[in-house]
């Protein structure tokens, strides 16, 4: 069983949703970023998504765009992102790691080489925003063959005619993007999310994660009652940005500030289903 499958299997037994956290590799600097990632499991993150910085993140809002540029300015590269995962795996063998980003840095490296290195570093899954099912031969099928899950986004525009194509080669979990738009902006209502999750459940046995626009513990709890996982990204990236000094350097309390936000989200998710 893969780390992702194992994690969802265990959480199902506990009857609680997973907290999936997103941070950008190398944001705001390489050392701080490593400390942020390393401390996530102890803060309550169940799955870790790590953004691979890219100059042109077309599907991201201002917060994650800025994070990517901070990381690139601090010297982030694909080598260093993979090194970060390797170092994380030295001490944590169980928490799933999913790399998220855009295709060009992978294509530039060569998909086969990237997959071999990512697998060896301990990466469990990929979310590549600009690779729809129509481009599955590029990376999705090679990733599956290499034993790395390819996690697909389903969106409000993915209608029932299209859903089977989206699900076909998906593995790990399905990431439901709850609003049509870029990251960190609007948020869907619980009713809309509930309907979407039911529609997805009818079509797949894969766990369903919901993200986009979830910032606060109570919002996370609400989604945790409906879905198998709650993804929080822009809010954590905002916490990083809020702890920078005017010159853009990390202040001493940055790591703690981000981890406490994760702790609050995790606590809300852990008790969400008991309250409902």
């Amino acid at each position: 069983m893969s780390r992702i499958a194992r994690r969802f299997h265990d959480l199902k037994a506990e009857d609680r949703a997973a907290l999936v956290t997103f941070l950008v590799a190398g944001d705001p600097d390489l050392e701080t970023s490593q400390a942020l990632i390393d401390g996530l499991p102890a803060s309550g993150a169940d799955l870790i998504e790590i953004g691979m910085p890219f100059t042109d993140p077309m599907a991201d809002g201002p917060a994650i765009q800025a994070a990517g540029l901070r990381a690139l300015a601090a010297g982030a590269t694909m080598d260093r992102t993979l090194e970060m995962v390797r170092r994380f795996r030295d001490t944590d063998k169980v928490t799933p790691i999913v790399l998220m980003g855009y295709y060009n840095p992978i294509w530039a490296r060569g998909p086969e080489r990237f997959l071999a290195e990512a697998g060896a570093a301990g990466v469990d899954g990929l979310i590549i925003v600009d690779l729809p099912p129509e481009e599955d031969e590029e990376l999705c099928l090679p990733a599956r063959a290499a034993g790395i899950d390819f996690i697909r986004l389903a969106t409000p525009t993915t209608d029932s005619a299209r859903l089977p194509a989206v699900l076909l080669n998906s593995s790990g979990f399905i990431y439901y993007v709850s609003v049509a738009g870029i990251t960190g902006q609007k948020r869907a209502t619980a009713e809309v999310i509930g309907q979407a999750v039911r529609r997805l459940r009818a079509a797949t046995d894969l766990p369903i994660a919901v993200g986009f626009g979830i910032r606060e513990p109570e919002q996370a709890a609400e989604v945790a009652r409906l879905a198998d996982a709650v993804v929080v990204g822009s809010a954590l990236v905002d916490s990083v940005a809020a702890s920078l000094d005017p010159s853009g350097q990390a202040q001493p309390e940055l790591v703690r500030a981000v981890h406490s936000r994760v702790e609050r989200l995790a606590a809300a998710i852990r008790t969400a289903r008991q309250q409902s």
């Binding site: 600009d130 729809p132 993915t158 049509a180 738009g181």
Partner: peptide, 20 residues
């Protein structure tokens, strides 16, 4: 049919845009 000219072209867009 996949929008390719040799290795070039294609449809490298987010799922939200794909139906459009």
């Amino acid at each position: 049919a996949r929008g390719r000219f040799g290795i070039h072209g294609g449809r490298f867009v987010a799922e939200t845009l794909m139906p459009l």
